[in-house]
Write a protein that binds this DNA or RNA. Structure first.
Lengths: 213, 213
DNA sequence: CCGGCTGAACGCACCCGTACAATTCGGCGT
DNA sequence: ACGCCGAATTGTACGGGTGCGTTCAGCCGG
């Protein structure tokens, strides 16, 4: 597959499909519009991807893999936690929120929520096969920080779950489910609040005096 | 359940509309099926509600108002916080999650996420006009608990935001966006975890020894 | 007798997936 | 560097299906 004989129109088609799907939803989007957005004729779309359903699935997987890669990279950035723990966590939170509050990520989650009943397999693709890959990766890092005495968490998985919840929950509301894009200072504020309460709960010794403004 | 006045048919139509919409999504649902589900002829539907769009809006508002009322009642139950603060917060968390993880609430949020770009006004209706009414009501109660010396929160709004995030975030993941219904013990576990870290961060004095399992 | 309800059908529009002939583009031998 | 071949692409049109919103005659209860 992937006929290399010609320019990779498949990529253009998948990108166009995702943008159109994110504008109008799955069933409201028509293949004609996707073809137009990709600058391609409709039969070409069916030449590369068999059906609208497959088109949707592949467009979602492509977008999901990109978003997951960026998120994992942000978490991996915590590996070399420099001197200051709070600063490192705040930076991690900001990076995660920059991925999370992205226009494309909002569209991805909206489409996932909308079609999760019709396409249940999308869950494994978007969240990362099995349970949530982000939480697992973050749990690994929190466990390391606990072993080195920087944190005091008894259940790394639960702590990771809650760290992510403290980040995404407030953003969901403040951003009005993605209809209002947040500025970087707003994201930094949310990340700071999240790290503050996370450290109040899980810091090893404590610098509890330095709460948020 | 047969005709007992016109007002009953309107309720039946709205209920049927919400169940069908939650099964198939907005654009995949056809008015015929809604009419059949309500035990009503299609012209009757258009006699009560002008268009499919209006039908969707009214069905969503009805479901949203019901869910919001139950949530606010749960928060109001915190007004007379008995002797034990942790027990009261855990009970509140469980009640909120019983509302949140309900099948109907999942359907409501899925439809909201799916159609928020096409029907932006649904946001004010579902979240409660203006900003989040739940967070505001909970912030009021947290402020009271701070004044009476049971908690130590500097920003009640942010604390309420985070308490709700600690509840709903883990449930979103564990429930796989509502495709897997959680049992009450599971919800109790999530609520216990949320209250534990919340108290670790915001308890006035502290009973920090009693963390989760 | 009257107003709401019913069942069925209709016009209109939309869209998926495919067929077909004409056309363009990339690769290759020389 | 050049020109040809075959494959990929294009535009258009069609068949099948579906659904919205409406119309209309008949029905039932008060």
């Amino acid at each position: 597959m992937t006929t290399r004989g010609r320019i990779d129109k498949r990529h253009a088609i998948l990108n166009a499909a995702f943008t159109v799907f994110s504008r109008k939803g799955y069933s409201q989007s028509c293949v004609n519009e996707i073809a137009a957005e990709a600058g391609v004729a409709k039969p070409t779309v069916y030449n590369h991807l068999d059906s609208k359903e497959n088109l949707f699935r592949h467009a979602m997987t492509a977008a999901a893999e990109g978003a997951m890669a960026r998120n994992l990279a942000a978490i991996e950035g915590l590996r070399d936690a420099g001197g200051e723990l709070r600063g490192a966590l705040e930076e991690l939170g900001l990076q995660l929120l920059l991925c999370y509050a992205n226009e494309q990520s909002w569209a991805l989650r909206r489409l996932l929520y909308a079609e999760v009943t019709q396409f249940p397999d999308l869950l494994d693709i978007v969240l990362g096969n099995g349970t949530n890959r982000l939480a697992e990766a973050l749990a690994d890092r929190l466990a390391r920080l606990t072993l080195t005495g920087r944190l005091r968490v008894t259940d790394p998985a639960a702590a990771a779950e809650q760290f992510l919840a403290l980040l995404t929950g407030p953003v969901d509301i403040r951003s009005r489910l993605g209809t209002r894009l947040l500025t970087e200072p707003e994201l930094r504020d949310v990340a700071g609040n999240a790290v503050s309460t996370f450290l109040l709960a899980f810091a090893a010794e404590d610098a509890r005096a330095t709460a948020a403004t």
